[in-house]
Amino acid sequence: MKADALRGHLDSLILAVVEKQPLHGYAIIEALSARSGGELDLPTGTIYPALRRLEKAGYLDSSWSEVGGRKRRTYELSSAGRNALAAHRQEWRTFAKVVSGVLGEA
């Protein structure tokens, strides 16, 4: 799946992968890749501006912590991020149901 197809959804995908536990940038990329079955095809460097944007928007909190013996900036979901993720999930379910209802008639 190309980056263009992901436009508008990347933020929600990032919020989803840090939902359970705080992760650093590389771990977020790995989680995105694993949960998409390797189908996400975007330059991994694009994730860092997105992480910073989500943090400034109040959806993520970040802190420097020691991971594997090295200092890493780790990101975790804020309460506002949790609400935004829940809202996006609901929107996505409705959207998918509508589109499936039409496309599935073939």
């Binding site: 330059p43 460097g45 860092y48 910073r52 944007r53």
Partner: peptide
């Protein structure tokens, strides 16, 4: 995997400028 400087730099520039 990370992306070329030409692809990545605009996003980083936006972040720094904002």
């Amino acid at each position: 995997d990370f992306g070329s400087v030409d692809d990545i730099a605009p996003g980083f520039r936006d972040t720094v400028a904002i």
